[in-house]
Simulated scan of single mutants.
Amino acid sequence: MAPFPTPSEEPRDDPDAYVGLEAQQAERRAAERGWSTVRKLPPGAIITMEYRFGRLNLEVEDGRVKRAWKG
C-alpha cells in the first residue's frame, strides 16, 4: 500500500481565529484555507493525542467553536 501524500506545509492559519464561529462556518473556512482534516469534538471528549499533520481540531458546544488547535 502506498503511503498517504503529505502536503509540504500546514496552512498558515491561526486556530484561535475559529473560536466563536458557528461549527459549519468554521469547517468551510478550514477547508478553504487548506486543512486536510477537521475534527469536531464535544467538550471533554476523550481523544487520541497523536499529532496529525494538517488536522484542525474544533471543540464545539451549542453549535459554536469554543476551542481550536492543530494536530
Score class of each variant (00 low, 15 high):
residue 10 E to Y: 00
residue 10 E to D: 10
residue 10 E to F: 00
residue 10 E to W: 00
residue 11 P to T: 11
residue 13 D to M: 07
residue 14 D to Y: 07
residue 14 D to P: 10
residue 15 P to Y: 06
residue 15 P to F: 05
residue 16 D to V: 10
residue 16 D to Q: 15
residue 16 D to R: 15
residue 16 D to K: 15
residue 16 D to Y: 08
residue 17 A to G: 12
residue 17 A to D: 13
residue 18 Y to K: 08
residue 18 Y to A: 01
residue 18 Y to S: 02
residue 19 V to C: 10
residue 19 V to D: 04
residue 20 G to V: 04
residue 20 G to S: 08
residue 21 L to T: 09
residue 22 E to D: 12
residue 23 A to Y: 02
residue 23 A to C: 05
residue 23 A to F: 01
residue 23 A to V: 13
residue 24 Q to M: 02
residue 24 Q to V: 10
residue 24 Q to K: 13
residue 24 Q to Y: 01
residue 24 Q to H: 07
residue 26 A to Q: 05
residue 26 A to V: 07
residue 26 A to W: 03
residue 26 A to L: 01
residue 27 E to Y: 05
residue 27 E to V: 13
residue 27 E to G: 03
residue 27 E to P: 00
residue 28 R to T: 11
residue 28 R to M: 03
residue 29 R to E: 10
residue 30 A to D: 08
residue 30 A to L: 08
residue 30 A to T: 14
residue 30 A to K: 13
residue 31 A to G: 04
residue 31 A to H: 13
residue 31 A to M: 07
residue 31 A to N: 11
residue 32 E to A: 11
residue 32 E to T: 08
residue 32 E to F: 01
residue 32 E to H: 09
residue 33 R to P: 02
residue 33 R to Y: 01
residue 33 R to T: 07
residue 34 G to H: 04
residue 34 G to T: 09
residue 35 W to R: 14
residue 36 S to F: 01
residue 37 T to A: 03
residue 37 T to H: 07
residue 38 V to C: 06
residue 38 V to F: 01
residue 38 V to Q: 06
residue 39 R to V: 08
residue 39 R to H: 01
residue 41 L to V: 11
residue 41 L to Y: 07
residue 41 L to T: 10
residue 41 L to S: 13
residue 42 P to W: 05
residue 42 P to N: 12
residue 43 P to Y: 10
residue 44 G to W: 03
residue 44 G to P: 06
residue 45 A to T: 08
residue 45 A to F: 03
residue 46 I to S: 14
residue 46 I to W: 04
residue 46 I to M: 09
residue 47 I to V: 15
residue 47 I to N: 07
residue 47 I to Y: 08
residue 47 I to E: 14
